Computed example of a mutant assay.
Amino acid sequence: MTRHYGMDWLRIGAFALLIVYHVGMVFVPWNFHVKSGHVEDWATLPMLATNAWRLTLLFVVSGYASRALLARSGGVGSFFANRCVRLLVPLAFGIAVIVPPQPWVELVTKHGYTGDYLTFWTRDYFRFGPLGGITLPTWNHLWFVVYLWVYTVVLTIGVAVVRGARMQRAFDRIFGGGLVLALPIAWLVFVHAWWFRMVGESQALFGDWIAHVTYFPAFLFGFGLARSEPAMAAIVRWWKLAAIVALLGYASVIAVETHWPGDVAAPRWVYTPYGVAHALEQWGAIVALIGIAEVHWNRDHRLRPMLTEAVFPFYIVHQTIIVLAMYALLRAGLPGWAEFAVILVATTIGCVIFYRLGRAIPLLRPLIGLRGRAPVKAAIP
Rank of each mutant, 00 (worst) to 15 (best):
L280E: 04
V145I: 15
W121A: 13
V342S: 09
G77E: 13
A360E: 06
V295T: 15
H318T: 04
V20L: 13
A182M: 14
T138C: 06
L70R: 07
Q319L: 01
Y5I: 06
Y274I: 00
Q203S: 10
T44F: 02
G333W: 06
V34W: 00
N298L: 05
N31V: 12
A277C: 10
L10F: 03
I380A: 14
K110T: 12
T44A: 01
A193H: 00
W260Q: 04
G75D: 08
H278L: 06
W30E: 05
I380D: 11
D124T: 03
F15A: 11
F171N: 04
H192S: 03
H38V: 09
Y117S: 05
I174H: 05
D8Y: 02
I12D: 11
R197H: 06
V108H: 03
I292T: 15
Q319H: 05
L247E: 05
D172Q: 09
E106M: 10
A218I: 13
A338R: 08
L55N: 03
N82P: 12
L248K: 02
E281A: 12
T135C: 01
R197Q: 13
G369R: 05
V311R: 00
W195R: 03
K240R: 15
I157H: 07
Y327G: 05
R373C: 02
L45Q: 07
I95H: 11
K377P: 15
G291T: 08
M326H: 07
R3H: 10
L363F: 05
M7N: 07
L183E: 05
R11A: 11
A374T: 07
I316W: 00
A165I: 07
L280T: 01
D300A: 14
D300W: 04
A52F: 04
I244Y: 03
Y274A: 07
P267H: 03
T138D: 14
V34Y: 02
G249Q: 02
A265Q: 14
G75F: 08
P46N: 08
E229W: 01
L10V: 09
A211D: 12
A68C: 04
G291N: 14
P267L: 01
V76C: 12
G207C: 07
W260Y: 12
Y355C: 10
L205W: 08
Q203F: 13
D172K: 04
A246C: 11
A255I: 03
G129W: 00
T272I: 10
I235R: 02
N140K: 06
L363Q: 04
A65E: 05
G74F: 07
P130H: 01
M25C: 09
T2H: 14
L303K: 01
H192A: 05
L364G: 03
L17D: 11
L330S: 13
F59E: 08
D263T: 11
G333I: 09
